[in-house]
Design a protein around this nucleic acid. Structure first.
Lengths: 193, 193
DNA sequence: CGCCGAGTTGAACTGAATCAAGAAACGTGG
DNA sequence: CCACGTTTCTTGATTCAGTTCAACTCGGCG
């Protein structure tokens, strides 16, 4: 159960076995069934979550009732609403399981405590955040490009996930409509044009 | 010279005076004149930079030769190309001074060394990154909205900077053309429509 | 003065959204 | 295992926000 996370940590820092255990005892295993929510709009997000199985999407519902997917979370990713986590304000996001999902959850206050006694643990979270950030920086760049480029970029990064996601969710992630995505797919499949 | 940074740090963590001094001696003061570059495409970005005066913009030049502004950096902000910084790969971004600018620069290797001996320093950088991250998360959301909303959001966040930036740079930051921004401004100024 | 970059305004164009039907895939109950 | 309803995906016609191209204004500065 902790194997994935142990490996993920080892990839970034080396942690004493005892510290690792301390950290693990602070974690809570959460199981979500498809379509269940990890976070709903209006709730305060006090936890960070490491996906060990399945997948989730983080999205906002805009004032016209349309869902905007900000981010996905699959195996080996940490996911949270960083804004609510940081400020303690209610979240404007929903995080929902796309399929049956298992995550390891850590509470912010607990984690902040642990950081004081186990500095390499903070090092780990800091490094992971830097990675996520670097990826986010690229996402902002890509969002400025035309729809076809955005789709191709998505395939390069997440091609292996394409069949696990609905067109609807992919389109929303790319900032386009379902219909436009459908047309782009047709175009990419047979460049008869 | 270190006053702004001292205050910024104190806002997030408490650091022993001696640790603070150790950190400061690792910093380098960099002065840029308007239009000078802090980073150019192709260079490896090994430094993180705290702006104490002036302002910079981070942008990419796309394959059609157009500039896409990703981010600005003004007083009290840390700025770097997080991707190149993290991976050691050449940057695809340029960071250029918008006006005469002064920054405090820290080298990645030095900083990583300091983190090992001064854990609260890593805490500080971790917290700052979380803040920046929360802000980028919002930026991704906003980039999915129509141009007018993006502009209004920009004004809410950066209204006080609007006159220090050219229309060109603001438009690029918003992901629209100069002309469109001009029209939006006219529309906002007199809602005679 | 006259030039030059920054900003505005107008007209035509275009990529993507919207609206509207179909087709295909999926799951649930008989 | 099939039939039926629901959701997902595709395809077409139309509309619209924002781009492009081009001309014009304004203010600064040699």
């Amino acid at each position: 159960m902790y194997e994935l996370l142990t490996n993920h940590i080892a990839r970034h820092v080396s942690l004493h076995e005892s510290d690792l255990q301390t950290f693990f005892t602070a974690l809570k295993l959460v199981k979500l069934r498809r379509h269940q929510y990890l976070l709903q709009e209006g709730m305060i997000c006090r936890h960070d979550n490491f996906v060990i199985k399945g997948g989730v999407r983080q999205y906002e519902v805009d004032n016209k009732g349309r869902e905007k997917v900000i981010h996905f979370g699959f195996q080996d990713w940490w996911i949270t609403d960083r804004y609510s986590w940081l400020t303690g304000l209610p979240s404007i996001y929903n995080i929902q399981a796309l399929e049956d999902t298992e995550l390891l959850q850590i509470d912010k206050d607990t984690l902040d405590q642990l950081f004081m006694t186990i500095p390499p643990l903070e090092r780990y979270f800091h490094i992971v955040l830097q990675h996520t950030f670097a990826y986010w920086q690229e996402r902002i760049l890509v969002l400025q490009k035309p729809a076809l480029e955005r789709y191709l970029h998505f395939r390069k990064l997440y091609g292996h996930l394409e069949q696990r996601l609905s067109q609807h969710h992919i389109a929303s992630y790319l900032g386009i409509t379902r219909e436009s995505l459908s047309r782009l797919r047709a175009q990419v499949a047979q460049p008869g044009k």
